[in-house]
Design a protein around this nucleic acid. Sequence first.
DNA 1: CGACCGGGTGACCGGTCGGTAACATCCGTC
DNA 2: GACGGATGTTACCGACCGGTCACCCGGTCG
Lengths: 217, 217
Amino acid sequence: MHVSRSAPAPVRRSSRLPRGARRAQLLQAAQEVFVAQGYHAAAMDEIADRAGVSKPVLYQHFPGKRELYLALLEEQVTLLTDRVREAMEGTDDNRTRVNGAVGAYFDFINADGAAFRLVFESDLRNDDAVRELADRGHRACVEAIGEVIAADTGLDRERALLLASGMTGLSETSARWWLPRKGSVSRDEAVSLLTALAWRGISGFPRLEGGAEGAPR
Amino acid sequence: MHVSRSAPAPVRRSSRLPRGARRAQLLQAAQEVFVAQGYHAAAMDEIADRAGVSKPVLYQHFPGKRELYLALLEEQVTLLTDRVREAMEGTDDNRTRVNGAVGAYFDFINADGAAFRLVFESDLRNDDAVRELADRGHRACVEAIGEVIAADTGLDRERALLLASGMTGLSETSARWWLPRKGSVSRDEAVSLLTALAWRGISGFPRLEGGAEGAPR
DNA sequence: CGACCGGGTGACCGGTCGGTAACATCCGTC
DNA sequence: GACGGATGTTACCGACCGGTCACCCGGTCG
């Protein structure tokens, strides 16, 4: 591309890079391609191209396509779970906790680059390692929330986790619904609405729920 | 395979079948394989094998792998959306509606054959037709629920749909969480718990929510 | 100045898998 | 009891793509 033949242009493509920098650049390129195309449709050639480099370079930094993908996936999973955990640990007011958790999902999904797709729309779920990683992340979020629910209601762990999983689903799905419609409702208002929904729902559990049994544990 | 050379076995494989029956059998086989392996890992050879038939037969009934997959996907999407619509239309008691919607998701996900994976865990989301189909289904569910929310609260359509999407996410995710743990909590109790959560959350909206605006539409 | 080496490249291989062409077989019909 | 068309089969093709081999630069150091 645009190599003006007359001048011996001191910078060639993106010129040579030290190992670390190249690696970072490759990860960035790979993430863009995987996000845009998904795992299967993404070609290693294209990732290399996007980094202005040829394919063997890619294989000097990563043993294979799968491993490259897994590295990116893990980063994103960790990002989300950390934020959810922070939302739980950062306060002891439960309404704030709910607000924080919903906000965590919204911010994660609203982040530049749409990297959330790696986590929530992976087309490699049938791979054991991927499924395991995604499950582990999801479980971490559910447990972080579920612990609080279990502690503050009379529900046993199993049921608390079930409700917690509902909370994560509520946040995730509504955030993904909102994303392409963010022009109509601001991030903060959306989070407020969902928080109100979730908080009223969950805060009623300690005493109000007059279901079949009120037996703790 | 096991063709005992001595006896001319009167029944060959599954013998010849009329077109309709063969087609149904192929769809069944394809669904099993797609559910178990996902789209990409599923091989046309394997689908044919499972139906006790050779590959060209498959191509006499379906123009290609994608179309076969789409046929199955559409069936499942329709199944879910119909049930959710029924839950909304079958009563005018809102709590019953919520219970019905949550139950619809649980039953769909709990159905034999795990066909819900085609809808919620498709590894072909990057295909335009698939994405469109899945989106349309999701939108149909969200709208069915959102209409009721909009009608019974002061919220405008946009916000009602946002909350509705949260409800679908809550139901879907919790049902998928529950599925491998159904030994611990019965389907009915799980649905009850989630319904309680969702109903308390949503039923507070008409009057309680003292948000920025209460303007209808 | 020349040899060494980290960084990079073009060309190629091999396996998998969707899809097809050509051939075989069964059965109802006249 | 031969015919014809629906039903099936075997064998094959070709494209795509992950992964690798052999080779090429260009700067730095003795």
